[in-house]
Amino acid sequence: MKWRFLEEKIFRAVMIIATSLTALILILIIGTVVVKGFKALKLEMIFRLPQGGYYFGREGGILNSIIGSLQLAGGATILAFFFSLPIVFYLNYFSKSKSIWPTLIRFSLDVLWGVPSIVYGAFGFLLMTWFGWTASLLLGIITLALLEIPIMSRAMDEVLKLVPPDLLEASFSLGATKFETAWKVVIRQALPGILTAILIAFGRAIGDAASVLLTAGYTDNITTSLFQPVASLPLAIFFQLGTPYPEVQQRAYAAAIILTLIILLISYLSRRITRRYAKHLVF
């Protein structure tokens, strides 16, 4: 057999092995969580606060953590967006072509992307001790936003690079400024990618335990102020798994199922929205 055909076969095999291994591991993880948590998964988990005198809750639900996680990740995503958008506009449209800054900024963002989240948590904790704050929703949001900014902005950066230059010229030739072009044309064209970037960042934030551990605290109640501690699903899972009681551990897995479902729901919704806007795109 000719080498070219052998090459093709080998490459095929490698692709199939890699893909199926990944799929298998994913199935194993989700399978474990579902099997272990399924029994504890009751509707009241979603609708009630922890009950039963335990801080981690042997009974009742994890409504505090669900709402807390949405508050934390939602707030952080909004905050991160208001930083990431100007960053990527600068990188792509407003920086001087010979300037060294865009390269430097992209490099720093890439480095920050790889920094473990516990380091962000420690940084938030430092802020807290310097200023004499206590663990709170606000501090958790700020820390998570720091975690999200590199992810969101680099993902959006890659998307903006794909916007055709002719489209920009079309807008400029009508007398639009760079800002108008970026705001009214680029955003529309890049919207699906921007939404994906936001979603990736949100997913990273809502699943992260280490950065909220030291900064957001924990509570059995629903948080109504930016300055109170807030519960979160990853910490609920972390704490409950750490107890010696099997029935509490089971509830941790149930919480993990809920966290996974939330992420699924959000990616589904964002895909729906994206499709609504994608019809306007030009190529």
Binding site: P164, D166, L167, E169, A170, S171, F172, S173, L174, G175, V185, R188, Q189, H280, L281, V282
Partner: peptide, 17 residues
């Protein structure tokens, strides 16, 4: 630029209605 309308080699419509 407002004084001049440009038609390019390939029509480039904006991503809107």
């Amino acid at each position: 630029r407002k004084k001049m309308g440009l038609l390019s080699q390939r029509p480039q419509v904006l991503p809107m209605s």
